[in-house]
Design a protein around this nucleic acid. Sequence first.
DNA 1: TCTATATTCAACCCTATGGTTGAACATCAA
DNA 2: TTGATGTTCAACCATAGGGTTGAATATAGA
Lengths: 112, 112
Amino acid sequence: MVEHQQLDAIFAALADPTRRAMLRQLSRGEFSVGELAAPFSMSFAGASKHLKALEKAGLVTRAIQGRTHLCRLNAQPMHGALEWLRYYENFWNARLDDLERELTADDERKRR
Amino acid sequence: MVEHQQLDAIFAALADPTRRAMLRQLSRGEFSVGELAAPFSMSFAGASKHLKALEKAGLVTRAIQGRTHLCRLNAQPMHGALEWLRYYENFWNARLDDLERELTADDERKRR
DNA sequence: TCTATATTCAACCCTATGGTTGAACATCAA
DNA sequence: TTGATGTTCAACCATAGGGTTGAATATAGA
């Protein structure tokens, strides 16, 4: 079972567009804090805080190499979040099925 | 494409354990605000606020029937969140593959 | 050693959020 | 009509969150 505190941190981390963009960038490889901060019109320290939130959620790990901190994606914790969501997959499929049934019924009506 | 404001609201809504529990409850059927609030040691108005957050994210809809408000799960918006996460699925699988490879290599070593 | 670079830390500001309480509103039932 | 029930609203409080700035730390390079 996924601890729910962990889900708290993960979903909270993902709720910010800056952080989602950083993760997307990290899916392309490792980057220093500076490189990750650059695309955003935001102070360096601000970006650093976002990274801290990502680390707290376990989504990013950091290897300090000299004066630069290399960040790396750790997608693993997302698994729990995805599983949590997947529980509801049937529900939106069910709704889609309903919709489809309705449309089909509509078709039938037209055909008569 | 999923608007990212929507992802903001969805992930933010899911970041709270009370709200996740309410959604879980709603997956079992429709419930009034009072019924949803009952399990939590929290004021009625408090629970009502959580429901408002869920509605804002589009995850809950409400049908007012007399003085009771019947709430219903609308899982649909979760689809976008799940898709967003699924993009990273390969990454944690890749990590698992790495781990497996390492363990296998370890096995090889022992066998010699 | 001196200086420039990469990063964090601490202090602060403002707004959002989770929670409370008490009053208001709407509706059902007597 | 009156009273009980289900719910929201408004005001408030405390804490967290996103952002800033300026100083501090650590390291690389001249």
